[in-house]
Nucleic acid binder design. Structure first.
Lengths: 214, 214
DNA sequence: ACATACATGTAAATGGTTACATGATTTA
DNA sequence: TAAATCATGTAACCATTTACATGTATGT
């Protein structure tokens, strides 16, 4: 379960309670790993039972209890073990490509709207990823990143910032690849494959039937 | 459940039994949607119960039963409905980027191996995706694609081939983006951020600590 | 006083993985 | 006759989603 490792990584930056953790998954980690509260709280309890993290109970006001978790030595060891281990990086399920594979079943205008929708959504990811990349490198950091770096010896800070920033650049780069793919898809719907493609089309004919049969 | 729609899409090309279907998920659909037999067979039964597909029982030899499924009118309608519908295209969990985010916790040589592993695996996807893209466009098709196109009116064949090929090109394009990201990662481990980056590094100093603290 | 944010969960259902189970048919 | 391929599943577990449930503290 990578959620365990995502949590270890975040708590290793700074001890937090489940509520703050779920905010982290909704904001900075939104395009890397999402997890709803209903998954976070039970997982925290499980990890505590396994000795990967430990809770400090705090009280806010008079009654409201906070359970602030921090990573144990065993937890850090497990995080390091996981990070050092190569795993299967192939994408096993890609709903966008699956939909793309059957796009010939609908009207080209409908297909174009699907591609446009992909472009709209992925653009938001590009903006977010590039913003974080820029801010981390410029040390114009979000509070959570400032805290992370403050815990490191000064010599390592640039190294750490470089790698963290690179991860967010990766999210942006992949979103850009998807945008380029969807843009090319729209072009293909309108004009068919390019003239230098493996397939030569009869001049002037548009490959654009109204509706397709099964 | 998109497995249902993946199955509808494949069976819409050509009626098949569960065994052939599972082979399709292992080969042509391997980088788009994977599904083990243990998930395929129960899903086929469920879809049959829902009226999306119907089974024709055949007997091979004297005893061995095959259940060959084909898409019903209701199934094709559902497939079309799903294809025409825009959905959330944001990647919710990306183990590669998650690992990349914590790569500062391990020795730079170990981190480089992780990036190299990503490159190796993604290269295989590029080769596969580009091969299928080429073959479909060149009509030098796999049997399954030949059958698919044979069922269409000649006028539509180029259009269909163009779109199918484009889906596989998408798998290759994304893998390429990951490779570029991992290559840049290796460069950063060795030389730190580029000189024109937002961060200026002291000349001659390498951001390459041996081991990092928690 | 009211709304918003803080805080922690449970329950049911769905989706997906891994391991196991069994036997028939074809090919070398 | 042995190995590979064809063929269809079940069971247990793990991961994820969606809906529900409850109450406290703070700011306006």
């Amino acid at each position: 379960m990578s959620l365990t490792h995502a949590i270890l990584g975040v708590l290793n930056v700074e001890p937090m309670n489940g509520y703050e953790l779920s905010q982290a998954f909704e904001t900075s980690l939104a395009w890397v790993w999402v997890a709803p509260r209903s998954q976070i709280y039970p997982t925290l309890r499980k990890m505590e039972a396994e000795g990967l993290i430990e809770a400090e109970r705090q009280v806010r006001g008079t009654k409201l209890e906070r359970r602030v978790y921090s990573v144990t030595d065993a937890g850090l060891a497990e995080l390091r073990r996981w990070v050092a281990e190569p795993f299967d990086t192939t994408m096993k399920r890609d709903p966008v490509l699956l939909q793309g594979l059957f796009l010939d079943l609908v009207d080209p205008d409908v297909a174009a709207k699907i591609f446009e929708h992909v472009i709209d959504e992925q653009r938001a990811i590009v903006e977010y990823g590039e913003r974080l990349h820029r801010e981390i490198l410029a040390s114009d950091l979000l509070p959570v990143h400032q805290r992370r770096l403050a815990r490191r010896p000064p010599d390592e800070r640039e190294y750490v910032a470089t790698l963290k920033a690179h991860a967010f650049a990766g999210a942006a780069a992949q979103a850009k690849a998807r945008i380029a793919w969807a843009e090319e898809g729209i072009r293909l719907l309108r004009h068919g494959p390019a003239a230098d493609s493996a397939v030569k089309r009869p001049a002037g004919k548009k490959a654009r039937p109204r509706q397709q049969g099964g």
